[in-house]
Amino acid sequence: MKELTYLEAINQAIDEEMARDKGVVVFGEDVGGDKGGVFGATKGLAAKYGDRRVFNTPIAEAEIAGLATGLGLMGHHAIAEFQFADYILPAVNQILSETTRMRYRTGGDWTAPVVFRTPYGAGVRGGLYHSQATDKIFLGQPGLRVVTPSTVYDAKGMLKSAIRSEDPVLFYEHKRLYRMIKAEIPEEEYLVPIDKAHVIREGEDLTVISYGLTLQYVLKSVADLAETEGIDAEVIDLRSLYPLDKETLIKSASKTGKVLLVTEDNLESNVMSEVAATIAESALFDLDAPITRLAAPNTPTVAYAANLEKEFLVSEEKVRQAILDLAQF
């Protein structure tokens, strides 16, 4: 067992998969050479596997997506990095019209197994272009998987699974978690499924579903409230944003009857809207309270000013209060 950060777990996953499969290539803006990405996720890989397998691209996201898709069709497993999730927008046409639709368009004859990695999320004073969660654009697009790990263990295990998947996977990594969380993970190889939510903590009183940075707040608040208020909350890491692991979500909602959904995205039309609809459809007669959402306000995006960023973001205090309110409902 060795203690790694979330970022090191990402690096290790890519490293191991490149060693295992010569068809795995890595490219993107600044990912190659000595730099190894603006966050260092691919650090050391160019030296180890050469510039032909780990290389830089122009600042042209549509091209990155198109290249990855083409390589996928040719039998490679490309890992393409978008430097920030905010930068993905120029590549949307390639990702949705080509990569995502490939299997459907060719009647199942062709697929583009690509991993698009991208750091997302706020809380690092990144302002408009470096803080957004753009995942909602890609949710509900059959043919594409959208996932995000929330723990060190999952960061490695899910990325390895994504690289081995024959489906295109949009792999969101929370940039605040990169160096914030550390954990010991097994030295031997393991995989984590990319289509399953994870019940992190079992409980009876209510269910809290979250992912990414806010999940950290949820875990802390739940532990605290268990001790101080005796609230026994079940915590689910959503992980797979699309498609949803409906079975796990419905089962938990049916068990506890109270559901709190926490995301750092804007309140309207984020992934939790779909989670809420799914639970409402399937678990209505097991519900003991309105399905509750905690999210950022409906402003265009995260503010740069520190006080406004703080106000915008879901915080541990807000999470704690929301859990308390729901428990007392």
Binding site: G257, L284, F285, D286, L287, D288, A289
Partner: peptide, 14 residues
């Protein structure tokens, strides 16, 4: 009792 017919959540009603 306040005399108000209580509003029951779906699970409680069931």
């Amino acid at each position: 009792k306040t005399g108000k017919k209580p509003r029951l959540s779906p699970v409680v009603a069931r």
